[in-house]
Computed example of a mutant assay.
Amino acid sequence: MTYDAERHAILLAEYCIAVQPGDRVLVAASTLALPLVEALHRTLLQRGARPVVRLSYPNQMEDAQRYASDDVLDTLHPSDLEDARAFDASIRILTPTAPDLDLDPQRAARHRASLAPISPSRLHSRWNLTLYPTEYGAQAAGMTLPDYEAFVAKAMFLDAPDPVAKWGEVRAFQAQLIERLSRADEVRLAAAGTDLCLSVRGRSWSNSDAKRNMPSGEVFTAPLETSANGTITFDLPTLYGGSVVRGITLTFQDGEVVDATAEEGQDILNAALQTDQGARFLGELGIGTNVGIQHPSMNILFDEKIGGTVHLAVGQAYVENGGTNTSAVHWDMILDLRRGGRMQLDGEDFQVDGRFVETTAR
Results as ranks from 00 to 15, higher is better:
121 S>A: 14
311 H>G: 05
18 A>G: 11
169 E>H: 14
237 P>D: 13
339 R>M: 12
236 L>R: 03
281 F>A: 00
136 Y>P: 01
350 F>G: 13
103 L>I: 09
114 S>E: 02
289 T>I: 08
146 P>S: 01
272 A>Y: 04
31 T>E: 15
311 H>V: 08
233 T>N: 00
49 A>I: 08
340 G>H: 07
340 G>S: 10
224 L>M: 06
107 R>Y: 09
47 R>T: 11
182 S>M: 09
240 Y>T: 06
129 L>E: 12
171 R>F: 03
337 L>H: 10
120 P>I: 10
23 D>C: 05
281 F>T: 01
16 C>T: 09
305 K>T: 06
42 R>C: 12
107 R>V: 10
278 G>K: 01
6 E>F: 06
151 F>A: 10
30 S>E: 15
85 R>Y: 02
248 I>V: 15
82 E>F: 08
40 L>P: 10
138 A>T: 09
48 G>T: 13
334 I>R: 09
285 L>V: 07
296 P>G: 07
355 R>C: 11
9 A>M: 12
59 N>F: 08
274 Q>W: 02
307 G>R: 06
238 T>M: 15
338 R>L: 13
60 Q>D: 15
339 R>F: 01
16 C>Q: 06
17 I>G: 05
214 M>K: 00
338 R>H: 08
313 A>F: 01
24 R>K: 15
234 F>R: 09
131 L>A: 14
113 A>K: 12
166 K>C: 14
175 A>P: 01
202 G>D: 04
275 T>F: 00
83 D>A: 10
76 L>Y: 08
40 L>Q: 09
310 V>G: 06
272 A>D: 01
260 A>C: 06
168 G>F: 05
199 S>D: 06
124 H>C: 02
157 F>A: 15
24 R>C: 11
2 T>C: 01
214 M>Q: 04
267 D>N: 10
14 E>Q: 14
78 P>Y: 08
51 P>D: 10
342 R>D: 08
82 E>H: 11
325 N>A: 02
331 W>L: 15
251 T>K: 13
213 N>P: 00
182 S>G: 08
5 A>W: 08
294 Q>F: 01
25 V>Q: 03
123 L>I: 12
175 A>F: 00
258 V>K: 02
335 L>H: 03
235 D>E: 02
94 L>F: 11
345 L>Q: 09
137 G>K: 11
6 E>Q: 15
213 N>G: 00
317 A>C: 00
87 F>Q: 03
288 G>K: 11
215 P>I: 12
149 E>F: 01
85 R>H: 02
8 H>P: 02
188 R>Y: 02
42 R>K: 15
282 L>P: 01
360 T>H: 13
344 Q>V: 09
158 L>R: 09
10 I>N: 05
69 S>F: 07
157 F>W: 14
